[in-house]
C-alpha cells in the first residue's frame, strides 16, 4: 500500500537576507511514520521544523500540513492549526515565568477543559516518561540544560498531537536517558498512530526509531528513503555522513 503523506515541503526556498538556507527543497513526511532528518550543523534542519510548524514562511514554495497550505495563512488561523502539531525545541524554550509543571501543563490548561487534578496527573506521567520526577515546582532557571530539554520534550507530547516535531531530542543527554527518549518516541508513534519528524545526530537512535531517513545538504534533501535503504546506500554523501569520514564529497 502506498503510504499517505501527512506533511510536505514543495520547492521551498528560504533565505535570511543574502544567506540562502534552503534551495528548492522537497520533503515528504509519511503519515504515522517516524522520519529522521540528518545533516551538518547549520544545514537548516531546525529551519525545516519551524517551517512545518508555520513559525516562519518560505521565501517561495509551499508547506503543507494535513492538507492545509501554511503559506499566506493569517496568524490567527495558524494558531488554530498548530494545536494539532507540536514542536520540541532544540533549546527547550520553556517559559521562565512558570514552573516546570505549569509549563508542561500549559497546552492542556489552555486547550482542554480537563480538571486541574487530571492535568496534574497527565503532567506527572509525561515528566515520568522522560525520567524527571520531583521537579514539578522547580523553575526553569533552577535546572540543567538536559533537564530543561526533557521538560520541553514532555511539553511537546502532553497533548498527544497528530504531528510531533522533535529538534535534537537526545543531543547532550546521557546514554540511558537517550534510550528512554528514543523509546518514548517509538511508543508514542505506535500507541497514537501519530506522525513524527526527528532531527538527530545520534546514528544509533536514528536507526532504532526511524521509518524514513532524509539527509539535508546544501539546502536540499539529497537522499531520502526507508531506513535500511539509507543505511546501505551507495550515495557517497550518505556514506561519508554515516561513517563520519573526513575525506569525501562533503567539504569539512
Amino acid at each position: 500500500m502506498e503510504p499517505t503523506i501527512y506533511a510536505s515541503l514543495e520547492d521551498v526556498t528560504l533565505s535570511f537576507g543574502e544567506n540562502v538556507i534552503l534551495k528548492n527543497c522537497n520533503l515528504k513526511i509519511v503519515r504515522g511514520a517516524i522520519t529522521c532528518i540528518v545533516g551538518l550543523s547549520g544545514a537548516g534542519k531546525s529551519t525545516i521544523l519551524r517551517l512545518l510548524d508555520g513559525l516562519i514562511e518560505p521565501s517561495s514554495g509551499h508547506v503543507y500540513v494535513d492538507g492545509h497550505d501554511l503559506c499566506h495563512t493569517p496568524e490567527r488561523k495558524l494558531v488554530e492549526l498548530r494545536q494539532k502539531t507540536s514542536l520540541a525545541f532544540q533549546f527547550a524554550a520553556l517559559l521562565d515565568s512558570l514552573t516546570i509543571g505549569e509549563n508542561v501543563g500549559l497546552p492542556l490548561r489552555e486547550h482542554t477543559a480537563l480538571s486541574d487534578e487530571k492535568i496534574r496527573h497527565i503532567v506527572d506521567d509525561a515528566l515520568e516518561s522522560v525520567g524527571l520526577r520531583h521537579i514539578y515546582d522547580s523553575l526553569p532557571n533552577e535546572l540543567s540544560g538536559g533537564m530543561l530539554k526533557r521538560a520541553g520534550f514532555a511539553r511537546a507530547i502532553v497533548t498527544r498531537p497528530e504531528l510531533v516535531l522533535y529538534d535534537e531530542p537526545t543531543t547532550g543527554l546521557d546514554p540511558i536517558v537517550t534510550n528512554l527518549i528514543t523509546d518514548t518516541i517509538i511508543r508514542l508513534r505506535q500507541k497514537l498512530d501519530g506522525t513524527a519528524v526527528v532531527i538527530s545526530h545520534d546514528l544509533h537512535s536514528i536507526f532504532r526509531m526511524a521509518d524514513y531517513v532524509a539527509m539535508l545538504f546544501e539546502g536540499a534533501i539529497i537522499a531520502y528513503g526507508p531506513r535500511e535503504e539509507i543505511r546501505t546506500s551507495s550515495n557517497p554523501f550518505v556514506q561519508q555522513f554515516l561513517t563520519g569520514n573526513e575525506v569525501g564529497p562533503i567539504p569539512v
Binding site: V79, Q83, L87, F89
Partner: peptide, 13 residues
C-alpha cells in the same frame, strides 16, 4: 530565547 515561538507553537497567541 524562543519563548514567544514556543507560545505560538502551542497555539497560544
Amino acid at each position: 530565547t524562543e519563548q514567544i515561538d514556543a507560545l505560538r507553537s502551542m497555539g497560544l497567541s
